[in-house]
């Protein structure tokens, strides 16, 4: 287990040594006029056979990263290899080696589950009979046999995502790298757990999985390694334990007695509320650490009026990990 690697990965050393299923160097991408920079020099390496989670809020660049790595869009600069193939020069080979499940279910609502799978199987090159057989296998494997002849519009959210995943598996041989873009967004907790089981099974069979999510818990449960993405850059990367140790896991909110005390401590805080003179500091939540923290920031016992303890949210993780970075405007107006 290695420590967090921070923002600067090795750049330009794109050697395909076979140990990484996904390698990306210095990816940038801007959209629109005036151009909004969505990716700002993203570096990424995912070892073969591991589950890697890209964690970030809306607009962090998760979907853009996935679209570049799955050849659906091209980066403005930088390079990437997936399953050993260059995503631009060897686009077809990449497409033959991957499976993508996007945020929007990529299946036809008016076709049945079986018709959708047979169609995808035919498009990926199977014969009519082969496609029928493959569709049957996949419906069985994803527990959709009973719903096979129903139009997809009658499916629940969880069934739809499972069908979507199955549709990504029709090709033969099975894909070696899976991209799951926010696979559980909008699902109820029960369906979410069902989908986690699917991901674990894919991982157990040796596939490499890149999963994007807004949910810390999801990344925590599924991923071998997690990268935090913010404003188009990886701001931290490591195992779930690494990241938790960086952010604490809880937030100690202090209501201060004076603005002097507020200004003195503001630099350490992940949460600021100047109107109420309240600051939130990261902590692991243990009594020993909270006591030590209170003693440390307020040795004389006069600066803090009240305190309260909260579980850290994803927001806190981000605010903590980005608080030292200069805040750049969302969009640069002159391009």
């Amino acid at each position: 287990m290695t420590g967090p690697t921070g923002t600067t990965g090795s750049r330009g050393g794109g050697t395909a040594d076979g140990s990484h299923a996904i390698e990306a160097y210095g990816l940038t991408k801007s959209y629109g006029k005036p151009a909004v920079r969505v990716l700002d020099g993203l570096d990424l390496r995912v070892a073969r056979g591991t589950v890697f989670s890209l964690l970030g809020p809306n607009g962090a660049g998760k979907t853009t990263t996935v679209r570049i790595l799955t050849t659906l869009t091209e980066a403005d600069s930088g390079s990437a290899r997936v399953a050993g193939y260059d995503v631009v020069a060897e686009r077809s080979a990449v497409r033959g080696s991957i499976s993508l499940t996007g945020q929007f279910a990529a299946v036809d609502e008016t076709q049945t589950g079986e018709e959708n799978l047979r169609m995808m199987a035919r498009l990926s090159g199977l014969s009519r009979a082969g496609a029928r057989r493959r569709a049957g296998e996949l419906l069985e494997r994803f527990d959709l046999t009973a719903a096979a002849r129903r139009p997809v519009r009658t499916y629940s959210g969880g069934m739809r995502r499972r069908l979507d995943l199955a549709a990504g598996l029709v090709g033969s041989p099975e894909p070696e790298v899976f991209f799951l873009d926010e696979p559980t967004t909008g699902l109820d907790p029960r369906s979410r757990h069902g989908l986690w089981d699917v991901v674990r099974e894919l991982a157990a069979s040796g596939a490499t999985i890149l999963l994007t999510t807004q949910y810390l818990e999801e990344a925590d449960r599924l991923a071998d390694r997690i990268a935090l993405l913010n404003r188009g850059r990886i701001v931290a990367e490591g195992t779930a334990a690494d990241l938790k140790s960086r952010v604490g896991g809880h937030r100690l909110d202090l209501v201060l007695t004076s603005s002097e005390a507020y200004l003195r401590l503001a630099g350490r805080a992940v949460h600021h509320s100047p109107e109420t003179l309240t600051l939130g500091l990261p902590t692991d939540g243990s009594a020993a650490q909270v006591r030590a923290l209170l003693d440390e920031v307020d040795p004389t016992g006069h600066a803090i009026e009240r305190f309260s303890l909260h579980s850290a949210t994803l927001d806190d993780v981000f605010l903590d990990l980005t608080s030292n970075a200069p805040t750049t405007p969302e969009a640069s107006t002159h391009v």
């Binding site: 076979g18 073969r48 056979g49 399953a83 050993g84 193939y85 077809s92 080979a93 497409r95 033959g96 080696s97 990926s124 090159g125 494997r141 090709g171 033969s172 041989p173 099975e174 070696e176 099974e201 894919l202 157990a204 069979s205 040796g206 596939a207």
Partner: peptide, 15 residues
């Protein structure tokens, strides 16, 4: 889930 060969050189996609 059927076993899959991991590692090794990348397989070529079907024609």
């Amino acid at each position: 889930t059927p076993a899959r060969h991991s590692g090794g050189p990348p397989r070529h996609p079907s024609p």
